[in-house]
């Protein structure tokens, strides 16, 4: 006697593909700088703006950017979001502040997180500074910058930030 079989309606097919990414010249230089505790940007020869992390080109002017500029690891929060929902790929305790930091000397914000600060104190204009891993643990990876924390300096007024918002 044949058993009645249900039709197959679903299959699970695990996929696995391995990729070896290369950083590109600009990112490589940037990451090597991080490994030395430095944040390096690039200046566009045409519009003179400084990009960080640098990508080897200015998207606005569509030209290569070669001039390196060392930037401060202090900056100002231009905007932020308080994340309360767990997110794939992010390993930070909830809730956390996901922030845009305009590093001193840069012309575009750098994305990072703020810790060591209650989330309801995060504000636009707040001054922050990078917290690095201990010197002996520095490596060519953005994980060398653990997070940003308040620097204690007075806030930057909103009007001064307007163009970077």
């Amino acid at each position: 006697m044949t058993e009645e079989r249900k039709p197959v309606t679903n299959i699970k097919t695990p996929m696995r593909l391995e990729f070896r990414y290369s950083a590109g010249e600009a990112t490589s230089r940037f990451l090597r700088g991080i490994g030395q505790g430095k944040i390096l940007g690039q200046r566009c020869p045409s519009c003179r703006k400084v990009y960080v992390p640098p990508r080897g080109s200015c998207p606005r002017c569509a030209v290569p950017t070669a001039e390196e500029v060392e930037l401060s690891d202090k900056g100002t929060i231009t905007t932020f979001a308080i994340v309360r929902v767990p997110s794939e790929n992010i390993d930070v305790p909830l809730p956390f502040a996901s922030v845009h930091v305009l590093l001193d000397g840069a012309d575009i914000p750098f994305f990072s997180v703020v810790q060591e600060c209650p989330v309801d104190e995060i504000r636009i204009g707040m001054r922050v500074e990078a917290v690095w891993v201990p010197k002996q643990e520095l490596a060519s990876t953005l994980a060398s910058i653990r997070y940003f924390q308040p620097s204690g300096e007075p806030d930057v007024p909103f009007e001064k930030l307007a163009e970077h918002l």
Binding site: S22, A23, R55, S57
Partner: peptide, 16 residues
């Protein structure tokens, strides 16, 4: 065979 440059670094001179 293996480009170490990123997409933009490869493309920009070609487009130009």
């Amino acid at each position: 065979r293996r480009e170490l440059r990123n997409e933009v670094e490869i493309l920009m001179p070609v487009v130009q």
